[in-house]
Design a protein around this nucleic acid. Structure first.
Lengths: 145, 145
DNA sequence: CTTTTTGCAAAGCGTTTGCATTGAA
DNA sequence: TTCAATGCAAACGCTTTGCAAAAAG
């Protein structure tokens, strides 16, 4: 991601933190930057390993708590999966997921048709729907060979 | 579920077990019956509690291993979720999920339009897609009030 | 100066493994 | 009689908690 784009998102983070009475610590800024550079959907442990390179004294707990905090305030999301460990997604813009059942890779894709799906009436009437997404499951390009 | 319908599914289980060189123990039969009666998407622990009532000497490991075995041979599926514990679904017929972000309930729904979604060309060309489903996230009827 | 956050350690929860015994085919 | 499954116990991996010290606002 371009530095200029990151700066905009960091400004955004600053505002959201202020709104939520959260302090913008160096750890949080660094973690957010690392997240923006992650194209995979890292677990807390993977993020901890990445973070340690930039900030050697950081603890796993800070990483894990920060990720949960970020997801609570909506700057990252938690990816749907089939067990442990929990995985995070820095991309909060609407998108869909392909799950490889072999290597467990989860890749993003965008698709306008999927974005425009209608919510069935019976659900629309009974519930409040915030988010809709399509999950495709199968074998990814790499595992196919 | 009607007993007659269950018997058909149990016959099916018998065949699939034979195909996979698996033995049809009383524990497995009982667990499969209990699963068919589950309309929620139970975790291994919930299934263990249910199973104990019918089969007091059963161990948690047997329950957990059986559920994993069942999912491996395709008679139950593992539900996509956002962390622990893993949850199982006795309904392997195609359907979609509504996730309540408040009470964590996951409810099934069927929808033909969703079933007939096309897989985007770029994915179709690169990967093999076995399964597609739509996840709706929001607040369920009970939590809305 | 107040309040949040951090790092550490321990506990907690869910899952998996090894192994002797049991039981299905 | 054979091979898989069970139950038990211990280990494991990931997540959460409590708390004193440190740092942000």
């Amino acid at each position: 991601m371009k530095e200029s784009q990151k700066e905009t998102l960091l400004d955004n983070l600053r505002k959201i933190c202020k709104l939520n009475n959260l302090k913008l610590t160096p750890q949080r800024i660094m973690l957010y930057r690392e997240l923006l550079d992650s194209t995979d959907h890292p677990s807390a442990d993977i993020m901890f390993k990445k973070a340690k390179k930039k900030f050697p004294s950081i603890s796993f707990d800070t990483v894990n708590r920060t990720l949960l905090t970020f997801s609570r305030i909506g700057v990252v999301s938690i990816v749907e999966g089939y067990g442990s460990p929990r995985r995070f997604d820095p991309n909060v813009i609407h998108h869909h997921h392909f799950h490889c059942i072999k290597c467990q890779e989860i890749s993003d894709f965008v698709n306008q048709t999927y974005d425009e799906l209608n919510v069935p009436d019976d659900i629309q009437n009974r519930c409040v729907v915030f988010n809709k997404k399509v999950i495709l499951e199968g074998i990814c390009e790499a595992c196919k060979n």
